[in-house]
Nucleic acid binder design. Structure first.
Length: 165
DNA sequence: AAGAAGATTCGCT
DNA sequence: GCGAATCTTCTTA
């Protein structure tokens, strides 16, 4: 299964809402890997979240993948998500992880290698990216670090753009 | 040792 | 729209 990433959020170094802010722990250690690795964690007793590390080794920073446009293995993803609605397959970070069968076993995987989970080059370029505040956090609320493809029906949350390019 | 909060989702009203 | 579900981590509320 797979798809095209249409919504992300950035958690840069030193950001008070980021998991790395209080230093390295057993849970967040993979956030401190080199760029392009997976940081997977579990929240609310229900959902896994997938991040891509975004800084050099030793610096904890990452990008949360919040939504993909489903392209490959749609029937399998429908089974994993227990829904037939294409739009709901991977709209939201927990749903995205469920659709791609992502769990803690994929924590620390190299996303630029030939492994169980990887990132590739876009099959179709995103031309219009909108920016808003991040969703579901309580600190650094004012930073405009959520990015999504304008007009995509596969994006979660508010669609009113704060800024675009 | 116990409790609260958390980068959410789902089902019900 | 609201609250429950459900579990890991960090704090001591």
């Amino acid at each position: 299964m797979g798809g095209r990433i249409v919504e992300t959020e950035a958690y840069p170094p030193g950001d008070r809402s980021g998991h790395a802010y209080h230093g390295r722990t057993a849970r967040n250690q993979s956030l401190f890997l080199d760029r392009g690795f997976a940081y997977v964690y579990f929240v609310y007793g229900t959902s896994y979240m997938l991040n891509v590390t975004a800084e050099e080794p030793g610096i904890g920073a990452g990008v949360l993948l919040r939504a993909i446009e489903p392209l490959e293995g749609i029937n399998l993803m429908k089974r994993l998500r227990k829904t037939d609605k294409l739009r709901d397959l991977a709209r939201g970070p927990g749903r995205l992880a469920a659709a791609l069968q992502i769990d803690q076993r994929l924590d620390g995987v190299d996303l630029c290698a030939n492994g169980p989970l990887w990132l590739g080059t876009a099959v179709r370029e995103t031309t219009h990216v909108s920016t808003t505040a991040r969703i579901g956090i309580t600190r650094e609320v004012g930073r405009l670090l959520r990015f999504f493809e304008a007009g995509s029906p596969f994006v979660s949350g508010p669609l009113n753009e704060t800024r675009s390019r």
